[in-house]
Design a protein around this nucleic acid. Structure first.
Length: 647
DNA sequence: GTTTCGGTTCTTTTT
DNA sequence: GAACCGAAAC
């Protein structure tokens, strides 16, 4: 059979660096792609190239860092080669693991309908475990602390006990108690057939390790594996990739060690640095030609990262015409910083720039408080990629718990949360009822529903009545196939009332819930919705909203991979950026410096950097701040300092 | 014995 | 804002 004539003129649409990487032969490939050098473009064309060369899309696996990145790449590949790319497997490590486990989790002793615990569920569970063990005392580490350490140990594949010894050298609490807590918590999760984010990864690996036939099937299937943002993979993620790629060895990884910003959750940029050593015969390509930013911005980026040793040396080469220098400003405080930004935003708008072409970036969510207030007051529309994910907000979780319970009668956490919405029902009462129901509430079972109704305190029965009636018709009206209807009815007949009583910002929350209803309407089963929901983060975006013209406020972490014409970076002061806590762990602040590098390289045309001089403290005192070392490390000739008077 | 409410404190980064 | 703690209310 004649090969199809190529419809894509690769040589015309890519530069020489990109073309070489796209047309690389089989075997391991490492692409070091500096910021703004067309990394996504290269990956997309690589996919197109593989398909044109005759690879079946179903045999390609694309692993990305966010669902948004996966979707973007698949969409762009589809535009290039057509709808056949839909057969490709693409997503985050977590979502791909999840898909694997939904098919085979029973082999590990889980139900296939296992629930996914978000961080709040996990915290509640841990607190419960500690309570039961009598360890929830002042002397003992808090659930959050334990969870983050356990997670770190799991993600780096280090021994839990060793990590604990390291961290709690001088702590009065017994390490053995903590290890016991770890075991009890793990068992508890398994018994209730629940997995947290880390479990998704380790169980996917355990599955492949314990079932050689299955491993072989997937190894055979994924003839080509592409991994984006490889510098941010951790030990288990790297192992997952290695296992799947072991047969064909057609593993292509893309990344930039300069942009490695997730060491704190176990990411190890040695994965990318040592990739050529690990895979013999690796072809290495470098993308250094930057199309995004003006040379003045790249100069700042290059200078700042030069302070970090032992990385793949590379310099961003500018292609764009020279323009204005980045601007450094020292406002008096956060309020003045906010007013200055507002002023500039207005000015840019008058010159015809859209709000959506501007972004404000910061180290931690907290840093944007004053600006949020100011924007609100001045009526400038903005969107925040807030600290809490959309699906983790209290009111969203309250409502989705009903769906969880319908889907999984043994979801204790969902049950507890749901009944605690009722008056006179708190933790104790809820637990008692759960005991009466023998750890199971089956909405399809009339007896079960009545049992619940009778077990409720008298004062709450009336309130439960509408939910009771809703549950009665779930089966008859096949509501399981229309989750949005359950959501809408539950909100109208029950939750609206609750929200009115409990939330100051009732309207905003109800708006969110209507949005939830709309979002849910694209699913035709409760199960499909739940599968999606647990792994969606707020950067993944709700497609409808993107047309709105609004200013973006985001942490630098969440801004990764994005770009704007104008970028404002807030609170570049010692203690904020680099953050005080990070300095305790790493006095050289190399990861924070990479974070600053990521921030600066988001900007195309204009970059503003702020270092407020002071901040008012809670007790009324004033704390003074020095500008960030990252500013100090720059040659003052590469930026312009704008002096502000009182505004 | 439980729930609720009011005051206090703290805020790194996320799939 | 939200998590925690202690005191008041049911």
């Amino acid at each position: 059979m004649e090969p199809l004539p190529s419809r894509i003129d690769f040589a015309a649409e890519l530069n020489a660096e990109q073309l070489a990487a796209v047309q690389a032969g089989d075997g391991p490939v490492l692409i070091i792609a500096a910021a703004g050098t067309g990394k996504t473009r290269t990956l997309v064309y690589r996919v197109a190239y593989l398909i044109e060369q005759g690879t079946l899309p179903a045999r390609i696996l694309l692993l990305t860092f966010t669902n948004r990145a996966a979707r973007e790449m698949v969409d762009r590949a589809r535009q290039l080669v057509g709808p056949c790319v839909n057969a490709m497997t693409g997503g985050t490590f977590h979502s791909v693991s999840n898909r694997l486990l939904r098919r085979h989790a029973d082999l590990l002793g889980y139900r296939k309908s296992y629930t996914i615990l978000d961080s709040e569920d996990n915290r509640k569970l841990m607190r419960d475990v500690l309570d039961q063990m009598g360890l929830n005392t002042k002397e003992f580490p808090k659930p959050d602390v334990l969870l983050s350490l356990f997670s770190y140990a799991v993600n780096t594949e280090e021994d839990v006990e060793e990590v604990l010894h390291e961290r709690f050298k001088h702590h009065p609490a017994e390490i053995s108690d903590m290890v016991q807590a770890f075991d009890a918590w793990s068992k508890r999760k398994f018994d209730m057939s629940a997995m947290d984010f880390d479990d998704l990864l380790i169980n996917a690996i355990r599955l492949l390790e314990s079932k050689p036939a299955l491993l072989e099937e997937y190894q055979e299937r994924f003839q080509y594996i592409l991994v984006d943002e490889y510098q941010d993979t951790n030990a288990i993620q790297a192992r997952f990739v290695d296992m799947l790629a072991a047969k064909h060895k057609n593993l292509l990884v893309v990344g930039d060690d300069f942009q490695s910003i997730y060491a704190w959750r176990g990411a190890d940029y040695h994965n990318i640095i040592e990739f050529p050593d690990q895979y013999e015969g690796t072809q290495v390509f470098k993308l250094e030609t930057n199309y995004r930013s003006i040379p003045e911005i790249l100069e700042v980026a290059n200078q700042c990262i030069a302070g970090n040793p032992q990385q793949f040396q590379k310099t961003l080469k500018a292609t764009r015409a020279s323009s204005a220098q980045p601007i450094f400003v020292r406002p008096h405080d956060g309020g003045q910083q906010a007013r200055y930004i507002l002023d500039r935003v207005r000015g840019l708008q008058r010159n015809g720039m859209a709000l959506k072409d501007m972004a404000v970036l910061y180290r931690s969510h907290f840093s944007s408080m004053e600006l949020q207030l100011e924007l609100q007051r001045e009526g400038i529309p903005f969107v925040i990629t807030s600290g809490i994910r959309f699906f983790e907000q209290a009111h969203i979780k309250d409502v989705t718990c009903l769906l969880r319970l319908i889907h999984s009668p043994t979801d204790e956490l969902a049950f507890m949360r749901l009944v605690c919405l009722l008056p006179r029902v708190g933790d104790r009462t809820a637990r008692k009822i759960w005991g009466i129901l023998r750890g199971r509430f089956n909405v399809s079972d009339a007896h079960s529903r009545l049992e619940l109704m009778n077990a409720l305190p008298k004062a709450s029965r009336e309130r439960w009545q509408p939910v009771h009636e809703l549950l009665e018709v779930v089966d008859a009206e096949k509501l399981g196939e229309r989750p949005f209807e359950i959501v809408n009815r539950f909100v109208d007949e029950f939750y609206d009332h609750y929200a009115l009583d409990h939330f100051e910002n009732y309207h905003r929350r109800i708006d969110d819930l209507h949005e939830l209803g709309t979002y849910t309407s694209q699913f035709n089963s409760v199960e499909m919705f739940l599968n999606e929901m647990a792994l969606l983060s707020n950067t993944d975006g709700k497609s409808g909203e993107e047309e709105e013209d609004s200013l973006k406020l985001s942490t630098v972490h969440q801004a990764k991979g994005l770009e704007w014409k104008v970028v404002f970076v807030l609170w570049l002061t010692e203690g904020q950026f680099p953050s005080g806590r990070s300095l305790e762990e790493d006095p050289l602040a190399s990861e924070e410096r990479r974070l600053f590098y990521v921030a600066t390289t988001r900007a195309e045309d204009m970059l503003w950097m702020f270092a407020p001089k002071s901040r008012r403290q809670r007790d009324g005192g004033i704390q003074f701040y020095n500008p960030s070392r990252f500013i100090g490390e720059l040659d003052p000739s590469v930026y312009h300092e704008d002096h502000v008077g009182y505004i």
